[in-house]
Nucleic acid binder design. Sequence first.
DNA 1: CCTGTTCTGGACCGGATGGTCAAACAGACA
DNA 2: TGTCTGTTTGACCATCCGGTCCAGAACAGG
Lengths: 219, 219
Amino acid sequence: MDQRNKDSADPPFPGTESDAPRRTRIQQKNRETILDAALDVFSQHGFRGATVDQIAQAANLSKPNLLYYFPSKEAIHVALLSTLLDTWLEPLRRLDPEGEPRAEILAYMHRKLEMSRTMPRESRLFANEMLQGAPRMKAMLEGELRDLAQEKAGVIARWSAEGRIAAIDPYHLIFAIWALTQHYADFEVQVRAILGPDHDPFAEADTFLATLFERLLAR
Amino acid sequence: MDQRNKDSADPPFPGTESDAPRRTRIQQKNRETILDAALDVFSQHGFRGATVDQIAQAANLSKPNLLYYFPSKEAIHVALLSTLLDTWLEPLRRLDPEGEPRAEILAYMHRKLEMSRTMPRESRLFANEMLQGAPRMKAMLEGELRDLAQEKAGVIARWSAEGRIAAIDPYHLIFAIWALTQHYADFEVQVRAILGPDHDPFAEADTFLATLFERLLAR
DNA sequence: CCTGTTCTGGACCGGATGGTCAAACAGACA
DNA sequence: TGTCTGTTTGACCATCCGGTCCAGAACAGG
């Protein structure tokens, strides 16, 4: 509602590192530590379920000290989310309209699965936000995300129309890639509960999903 | 820690409706109202994010009154979860080993998608629990769920071995069905943000997924 | 009508939680 | 050494939140 110009000079504030990468080395380090700790806590408990104390403890900082680097719990969450979408969309951005269709889509799927494997916390943070109806991300979804999805869906639709891959709804193909890859991060407990300890879910998923998409896209 | 035998006779307590369907009609009604309201709130905000006041308000009851029917917030949550897994697994239970393989799997997928469409709150409640590492459901996952999944995976593996469907990892096939169908409930905001208002995500998903699984399973 | 039981909610309690403040501390540099 | 800027923290506050108490209201059944 109100523009909260809390800058002035008192606390070091988030802000895009546009023209002022901001201050001391110790600030840089502590902000990173905090964001990392917050990612742990938020991704597991959600925004309301997380407490500032938990984050501070995970970051080995006192609560007031933490609030010296970020003005509020909300600010930390926002900082995380604004980075997140970019990271999250990167693999899709790299889908090359000039590449070989089947290989491009498969490669995208692999990249996305790899992200689920190496960044499960980010995946869960994102999932949490979606589950709650994306109260803090809706704008981004309807802007950045939508634009990128439309662009890439266009590419896929063209490939499909040219007969270079099987006929397919490009949007739902993208949804399928998201759903199938993120599932292994977000529902990891469930997957492991079923497969038991002697399996590597991600390795198996990798071959399974390769098969799935090859069969789906084969002309 | 302590066994809280809070029964005795004071508040009407949860309990499976094994041999005592319990008391008055008004109790029946209020318990249902409460569980419905709680499903709204828990599915959107998660356990810690939900407040008893919110639930009470959604149920049009005062907080003390609500706590007259359920001994605690936790008890409400537990009541919801214990019903949930059963509901959730029902479609899979109906997968018939004697049926026609392709039709059975497709039908299962349709049932599951239909559940995402008609019970998105339950889907999100479940997703919330998974995201948090299933603290209150782990036992069920490693018991009931695992058993059922193994049984049905066995059926699918047999079909696969007999050449009645294409060779496929049965566990990951099941995961794929879960991931693809639940995605449309859990990530509905995202799907709608991308498709815009003039689409019916579930109708499109229905045909898309039918194609996907037909191609995947074709020999 | 009375009487016992069930149901309802205003007031309250203790602990958690987000956030503030002022005072102390640390390092850089003159 | 003194001072200035940036960093850290113990103590504190107001609000929220889960849960309890108790005094009634509604509703049997006679």
